[in-house]
C-alpha cells in the first residue's frame, strides 16, 4: 500500500496522500476476520485436516460415473420444466404487480401494498419458500414451481417497477391527451419504453430460476436437486460429479442463449 515516491518535490503536494481512515477500515476488516474466524472455530488444523479429507473426496469423485444416465436426464428435464414454467408464470404475475408498485403511475394506496408484497416475496430464500410449499402441496415439481414463482415475482416485479419509475412521462401525457383509456396509456406509452429492459430481467430470471431449480430438490421440490441429494446421501460421489458437470454445462448454455435473446430484443 505504500508505493509513494520517496521525496516529493518541495512545494508540490503528494499526489497520492495517505488516507488514515481507509487504513483504519482495512485494519478493522482484518481484525474482524480473525475474530470471526476464531468464533466459528475456523482453525488452521481443521483446514489442513480437511484438505486431506478433500483429496480423498476428490479421489472418490474421479472419474465421473456415467452409470445412471436415465436418472440424470429425468432430473435435468424436470429442472428445466420447473424453471420454464416458473419463469412464465413469474413474468405474467410480475407485470401487474410491478405496474401497481410504480409510484409515478399509481396512487400511494395501490403502490404501497404492492411494494410490501414484493418485499415479502424477496425476503425469503427460495428454499425456505419451497419448504412451506412442500408442506402445502406435497413433494414434487409443483412445490418447486410455486417457490420459484414467488422468487421470480420478488425479483422481476421490483426491477420492473423501478424501470417504470424511470420512464419519460411526456409520452404518457401525449397519449393521455388523445383521450386514451388507461390500458391504452399502458400499452402505447409505458410498455414500449420498458420492453427492452423487461426482456433483460426476464432472461436473467430464467437463468436464475434454472440455477435455483437445481436446488429446490434438496428440500423435496423436485428436479435435479433431488437426484443430487440422493446421490450424496448414498455416497455416490462419482455420480455427484457427473450431475454437477451437467448442471454447469446446462447453465453455461443457458447463459449463452440468454445473451442471444437479449441481443435480439435490443
Amino acid at each position: 500500500m505504500s508505493i509513494v515516491p520517496a521525496a516529493p518535490a518541495a512545494g508540490r503536494p503528494n499526489p497520492f496522500p495517505v488516507s488514515w481512515t481507509t487504513r483504519a477500515a482495512w485494519l478493522g476488516l482484518a481484525i474482524y476476520s480473525v475474530y470471526a474466524a476464531s468464533l466459528l472455530d475456523v482453525t488452521w488444523e481443521r483446514f489442513v485436516f480437511g484438505l486431506g479429507n478433500g483429496a480423498r473426496f476428490i479421489g472418490r469423485m474421479l472419474p465421473p460415473a456415467f452409470t445412471h444416465m436415465d436418472l440424470l436426464w429425468k432430473g435435468l428435464a424436470e429442472s428445466l420444466e420447473i424453471a420454464i414454467i416458473a419463469t412464465v408464470f413469474g413474468i405474467v404475475l410480475s407485470l401487474p404487480v410491478g405496474l401497481a408498485a410504480s409510484r409515478n403511475l399509481m396512487p400511494i394506496w395501490v403502490s404501497w401494498p404492492a411494494r410490501a408484497f414484493i418485499a415479502l416475496c424477496r425476503s425469503f430464500h427460495p428454499v425456505i419458500v419451497a419448504i412451506l410449499f412442500v408442506k402445502a402441496v406435497g413433494f414434487g415439481a409443483i412445490a418447486g414451481i410455486l417457490a420459484l414463482i414467488v422468487a421470480s415475482v420478488g425479483f422481476i416485479a421490483k426491477l420492473f417497477a423501478e424501470a417504470i419509475e424511470e420512464i419519460s412521462l411526456k409520452q404518457v401525457e401525449a397519449v393521455r391527451a388523445t383521450g386514451a383509456s388507461f390500458m391504452n396509456v399502458i400499452f402505447m406509452a409505458v410498455v414500449p419504453q420498458v420492453l427492452a429492459r423487461f426482456t433483460g430481467f426476464a432472461t436473467y430470471q430464467l437463468d436464475s430460476n434454472l440455477r435455483n431449480s437445481t436446488m429446490v430438490g434438496i428440500v423435496g421440490g423436485g428436479g435435479i436437486g433431488s437426484t443430487l441429494f440422493t446421490a450424496f446421501q448414498k455416497f455416490d460421489y462419482d455420480f455427484v460429479l457427473t450431475i454437477l458437470l451437467a448442471i454447469i454445462a446446462i447453465i453455461f448454455v443457458g447463459e449463452i442463449l440468454a445473451g442471444w435473446v437479449r441481443k435480439t430484443f435490443q
Binding site: V42, M215, F229, L244
Partner: peptide, 22 residues
Amino acid sequence: SRSVNSLVWALLFVAVFGPGAL
C-alpha cells in the same frame, strides 16, 4: 462458481470439512 448453488457448495464442504460453520 456461480453455477453451483451455495447449498450444493455447502454439501461438498460438509463432506470435506464436516458439519459446522467452516
